[in-house]
Design a protein around this nucleic acid. Structure first.
Lengths: 337, 337
DNA sequence: CTGAAAGCGCTTACAG
DNA sequence: CTGAAAGCGCTTACAG
């Protein structure tokens, strides 16, 4: 059953059938009615391969996601998919491995599915330093800043990483903490890690706190195990610390486990704070003090910017979205003792 | 960059290029070498729309996922996608809302993308009771049993829910627990909840333990908040309980929070066990005793069965995969005191 | 072993 | 508003 059969059956040409299928206004009511009737009678479905092969600009946005077990990204992704669908851009999701190159995958997806735009989740910025030339549709990095990129089609939406980190350090300082350990990502791969470190440094400087990266910054992966190992490293390199700032809630959970395995209590012996604001953090003991990334806002701005780029082509835009500070119970107030 | 460009560049005809791409043996070594070189130089990837249009064959498998924030499903999903890709069935993922109907979405996806098969993640069985007629390709329910369905094309892969639940009750009994609360899903919607309850009941009966569902079974959602509310309900309806079996790790985390908010310690006052075996449970305090669902095995069997159904069409198969019991620190041994 | 050519099912200028 | 026709990028008989 093809468009040709429908044409024969309805007495019109294939072109006209194609027009009614695609809601092209240039069809008489009579033709539309007649053709629809035949289509419905045979329950005809057009072949999407032929359609996409032929069509110049197909509809939709591709979402390329690195790492499935990231709860923050999963929430943003879900919201973003809903928003795209509402806006008339059907979305498809492609998970890729932690070690895969998202840019080459994106190229392949462009070739095969011809999306109008691409949303990247959990991407390493450094993969975008290479050749983006063949990727000539609007792209957007979610929760990773791309302002440094020279690509005119690569936008980004991030939380105010540096402001949030600075705020967190100020808070710990106000609670009497003077030696603070940091658990973050490998700086070369993760722009957010760099921005958060910059925020921390600006606070350290302003507050007159010394900071030695080699002793106080543990570079690791954004995972439970990464947090665990990072904490163990810090325990060795920076034995006097009273507080630890993990750059993700999940890392913080790993760090807390490591602390406890070393016989230390949280927050009595060591305070721990996180980043992301996962729902989970409200349920932990102690409840985790953290920075909330505004999931809905991030998804909304990301999708809106991407669609705006698709429709108006204004060049790359890099938006920073405000954070929310969540004070809970994982920090000890040293000024009280 | 198309096959035509490769042909021109290499000095051969498109037919020959096509043959080397598809590993057709009727190509001279010289031609294969020359063409491969050009393909690699340009990093050429054939257009799959054109390929599939011509081949009339496979378009891969669709994965329909309900709920993004389920870590267990996310892990299975990731593994399943890799396995499908390896098997030559490109996969696409469609997230749907908790309230959406997966079957109507599946119908739409069939129409638009014509997959060879569908994998359902996190689906309610009761949506499959209706009309599956238009869904005439092989489908498979992941971690939800479909043996009751009369659909000949609906397979399923589940862990041994009832055996695992029974094992858990036996374990709690051996540790001296006699009044055990259960936090599970709404039985009508969730087959696993039913199977786990059945496993619990068989143990209760065998062990001579009385059980009153109205007092001891809290039906709620598989979420943190669900676990929290379920626990509060149990605290009222079954004040003498010494242990709680939550049907998911996430619910267990919610339950523990509720317990603590009511001034109860875990496991000193109340023991809590979970289900799923998320990596997170090793990092919590106390480390959670739970049942591990074998993620890789589930993904592997699910994908293999689905592909087997696609290629051989043997009718629905329902496979049960063994569980793994993880004893940790969230259960108090009452026989010691 | 290789090339020339038909054709997969659709969309879309183009002409009327 | 409609039809005839070109062509999307590939595969695959068919000849040689």
């Amino acid at each position: 059953m093809t468009i040709k059969d429908i044409a024969r059956e309805s007495g019109y040409a294939v072109g006209t059938v194609s027009r009614v299928i695609n809601n092209n206004p240039n069809v008489s009511d009579a033709a539309r009615a007649r053709i629809m009737e035949v289509i419905e009678r045979y329950n005809f479905q057009p072949n999407s391969n032929a359609k996409h092969l032929k069509q110049q600009g197909s509809h939709g946005v591709a979402m390329i996601v690195k790492g499935t077990s990231n709860l923050l990204l999963a929430s943003i992704l879900e919201r973003a998919q809903a928003l795209c669908d509402e806006a008339g851009y059907p979305s498809s999701i492609y998970y890729i491995d932690e070690d895969d190159n998202e840019v080459s995958r994106a190229r392949q997806i462009c070739r095969e599915h011809k999306p109008n735009g691409i949303l990247f989740f959990g991407s390493d910025t450094h993969n975008f330093e290479g050749d983006l030339s063949e990727l000539d549709i609007p792209c957007l990095l979610m929760t990773n800043m791309a302002a440094d990129s020279r690509a005119a089609n690569l936008s980004s939406v991030t939380v105010d990483d540096s402001g949030a980190a600075s705020r967190m350090i100020d808070y710990l300082y106000a609670k009497g903490h003077r030696t603070i350990g940091l658990i973050g990502g490998v700086l070369r791969c993760s722009h957010p890690s760099g921005a958060r470190l910059a925020g921390c440094l600006s606070s350290f400087t302003r507050l007159g706190l010394p900071f030695e990266a080699a002793r106080q910054y543990a570079a690791t992966r954004y995972t439970l195990e990464g947090g665990y190992r990072g904490m163990e490293q810090l325990l060795k390199s920076c034995p006097g610390l009273t507080a630890v700032f993990a750059y993700s809630d999940i890392m913080a959970v790993g760090a807390i486990r490591a602390l406890r395995d070393h016989g230390l209590r949280v927050p009595e012996d060591v305070s721990v704070v996180g980043f992301d604001g996962l729902e989970l953090t409200e349920y932990l003991s102690p409840r985790l003090t953290t920075i909330r990334q505004p999931v809905d806002r991030l998804a909304e701005r990301g999708v809106n910017i991407l669609i705006h780029c698709i429709e108006q082509n204004p060049g790359a835009v890099h938006e920073i979205v405000p954070f929310e500070f969540l004070e809970r119970d994982s920090v000890r107030d040293l000024t009280q003792s």
